[in-house]
Amino acid sequence: MTVQTVPSKHAEPPEVVRRRKLGKPLSNGTFGFLLTLPAVVMFGAIVLYPLAGSLSTSLFKQSLVIPGRSFAGLDNFKHVLENEFWPVLENTLVFTGLGTIAPFVIGFALALALNTQMKGRAVLRGMFLFPWVIPGVVVSFAWLWIFNANYGLLNGLLVRLGLIDAPVSWLGEPGTAMMAVIVAKTWASFPWIMVMLLAGLQTVPSVLHEAAAMDGAGTIRRFWHVTLPHLRGIIGVVILLELIWNFQHFDTIYVLTGGGPAGATTTFAVAVYETAFKGFDLGQAGALGALWMLLLSVLVVFYVRMAER
């Protein structure tokens, strides 16, 4: 191979590449593209083809266990829109909304509190990550046990404090099950938000705070006029990513309640899984999934717009 210059960040214009004669050994660009082939093939096989395939099942009457399918037009959409779609949407919105706001408030408060010259701050930050790094099913096991109706810690504490007379079945009542699921998810989510916001806080120049303080601005005014404007970008990213993830979240809900009681915690992720793998109805699962994907893409578009800015 002759000496070639490796394209640096300031790439040679594409025309130069295109003018190379055919029959030569692989040009640099072609070789570069070939390097991505394993990844591209895997994405095609594991993400893109399944995405297209699953969306297309929404137009067919198709079972998981019986081979073959027949075209059904929009019947599946009609059926899910007249049945589970609306309650599932409501559950998903409640879970996504509260499951984003609660950990955001906690994570932000903790980030502000840890953004000082406190002794052992790095160690504390690392320890606070524990709920976020452990497997999702372990999060569910821990809270399943805490919310347990007969021997659970929560009932024990509340009875001792005299706040309730008899143990409550937190996960067994539609009214409390969703709150319980959101508490568990909040516990697992806030550490990541804390780390992100703490990283952002550390980029706020201390000169700004000092100048504002000299002008007589108190803690709260400095927070509103110095800290918040500086963090606007990172807050937007954190909230949007949390919304996107919660909108798809499966593990915590499925292990804690399985979507129950009486469907009170059935979100899109749980509903699509149950319809496909417990009900074996791929057509309806596909229709529900297509609507899910459509709503999700609104959030993703917002995110991409923000990332580009």
Binding site: V6, P7, A11, E12, P14, V17, N28, G29, T30, F31, G32, F33, L35, T36, A39, V40, F43, I46, V47, L48, Y49, P50, L51, A52, G53, S54, L55, T57, L64, I244, Q248, F250, F268, A269, V272, Y273, A276, F277, L282, A285, G286, G289, W292, M293, L296, V300, Y303, V304
Partner: peptide, 30 residues
């Protein structure tokens, strides 16, 4: 270290792929 047509699109495609709901992909993957 390489520059070629479609590089940016590929990068964004790979980043975006985690935005697709896994439960939906699983229907066909199964």
């Amino acid at each position: 270290k390489f520059r070629y047509r479609g590089r940016k699109s590929l990068m964004y495609l790979i980043l975006a792929s985690q935005m697709f709901p896994q439960g939906l992909l699983l229907i066909t993957l199964y």
